[in-house]
Amino acid sequence: MSTGTTDQVLHDCRDAYAATLIELAQADPRVVAVVNDSVGSSKLGEFRNRFPDRLINVGIAEQDMVGVAAGLANGGKIPFVSAASCFLTARALEQIKVDAAYSNHNLKLCGMSPGMAYGELGPTHHSIEDLAWLRAIPNLTVIVPSDPDETAQAIRWAASHPGPVFVRVSRMGVPEVNPTGYRFEAGRAALLRDGTDVTIIANGTVVAPALDAAHDLADLGIQARVLSMPTVKPLDVDAVVAAARETGAIVTVEEALTTGGLGGAVAETVVQHHPVPVRFVGVPDVFAPTGSARWLLEHFRISPGGIVDAARLALGR
């Protein structure tokens, strides 16, 4: 098991999200929040206290929520839709496709507590399909930040970008994984550790176990590169191709279905540009059982041990 390469103080990225949204709202009167009775679950209580008129609660009505956000954008606002990712992306998928992406409305979709954050609540509340669904929609940027700082930077970028953006905002405690002074760039991977034998590409809550796995692989004499890939769409094709060319094997790690999400995106790129062995760490094509988020990550071996094994399989040793 890992000795740990990351700071172990755990943070809820929703705190960084909420603080950043307040900062943006103070600076720009166009910024509004749109929720489906999800003030508490989005940690927007303080936002509501400060900007009561700019916290629009449509009630438990996700289709209306995204449509209203599109209309607010049409009216010159910059709406941040904040709702549990499972309901936002599934119930309002056609509104995301048509009202946000196809219409090119300037609205931001912030999927709270994605992946298996609501582990015990079961597959209805898991959001492991969201990346596959949303990655299939043209003109939509899809971002999966890994820690509070990257969440804050991604939200600031989304506010400045004139078009539809989806950002996953994790509730599961995560350590700071990016170095001091890290600058998030949409569409760009971040090199967190260099290596020559295999590349681990991860995002979101599972960048930390990827770093731990690289540490463990080094003990086995395998030098792993770790790329953080916060932007699933558009993918940093250059970084993926360079990883394939320079390290010869790739492992993807995500808190999502491996079909269609980060793993799918990386595999599509590798196959077309520089075929090398690729292994996927994530949830296979099943509904996850009930269990805590941490238990589920271990259950699906989205863990340092699982990543080490996947790397060894990719390398054939």
């Binding site: 599109a70 954008a73 010159g76 606002k77 009202d99």
Partner: peptide
């Protein structure tokens, strides 16, 4: 003002647009 075709999209968008006007 809005891309439509699938039914049931226009009224929520109109609510949002009118709400933006009200906020202004």
């Amino acid at each position: 003002e809005a891309n439509t075709g699938p039914l049931g999209h226009g009224l929520p968008i109109a609510v949002g647009t009118a709400l933006a006007g009200k906020l202004d």
